[in-house]
Computed example of a mutant assay.
Amino acid sequence: MLARSHANPYWNTSIYGAYAQVMYNSTSKGYICGPGGTGVGGTFGITFGAAGLTSCNPDYAIAQIGTQTQWTPVKNLTFTADLIYQRLDQKCAGTITTAAFGSVGKPLATYQLKDQDGVSLLLRAQRNW
């Protein structure tokens, strides 16, 4: 989705969005979550730990909406501000205690599984010759 406004030759604003969803079938969920969805004994070595896990469902969705404004005060010089809001809607709930994952930089800790929100601001200056 993209909407643009050209209210002024020096300013340009657009609005955009995106949505993606991943849904696993029951066989895949069994491999990830273990027998009966307990989170213990998953094929990939993920042990959520029955004590803290209230729901093991690896399905998730990601949504984004953003706006970008460009200002061109003189020919071939553009300043851009891009503001983005994103949301991760995940279906797992509870807590997990992980082993140290050296390859991904996650330390040994207990993590809470929940939806996540984020906001990003990108600033850019571009000069063309």
Rank of each mutant, 00 (worst) to 15 (best):
N76V: 12
T69F: 00
K114G: 13
Q112G: 14
T80P: 03
I15R: 05
A51Y: 10
S28M: 15
P9W: 04
G30M: 01
W129Q: 13
G41T: 09
G37I: 02
F48Q: 05
N12Q: 14
N57V: 04
G66Y: 01
A99M: 09
I46F: 11
S14E: 14
C33G: 01
I84K: 07
F79S: 09
I62A: 10
V22Q: 07
G52C: 02
H6D: 15
L121I: 09
S5E: 04
S120D: 04
P107E: 09
K29C: 03
G49I: 00
G105S: 10
T27K: 11
K91N: 07
D115A: 11
K75D: 12
L108C: 11
I32S: 05
W129F: 15
G105F: 06
G118C: 06
G66I: 00
F79G: 11
N57T: 07
T78A: 06
A93Y: 05
G41N: 08
Y85M: 08
V104C: 11
A81F: 07
Y24N: 14
V104W: 07
W129L: 15
T78V: 13
D82K: 02
V40G: 01
R124T: 14
Y31F: 15
G42P: 06
G102P: 13
I96Y: 02
Q21P: 02
G42C: 08
S26G: 09
L113H: 06
D115M: 06
L88H: 10
K29N: 03
P73C: 02
T98P: 08
Y31W: 15
F101W: 11
T54G: 06
S26W: 04
L108A: 14
F48L: 13
G118I: 08
W11N: 01
W71H: 01
I15T: 10
Y19Q: 02
P107Q: 12
Y10V: 15
S103V: 13
S5Y: 15
R124P: 09
I84Q: 05
A18R: 08
C92Y: 00
T80I: 01
N128D: 12
G49E: 00
A20F: 00
T47E: 08
S120Q: 07
M23I: 07
F48I: 08
T27D: 12
Q126V: 15
K91A: 04
R4D: 13
T38H: 08
H6R: 15
N76Q: 13
G118N: 05
G17A: 13
I46D: 07
S55A: 14
D115L: 08
A63M: 03
C92E: 01
L121S: 04
S103N: 10
N8S: 11
L77D: 12
F44K: 09
F101R: 12
K106C: 13
P73M: 02
Q64I: 03
L122D: 04
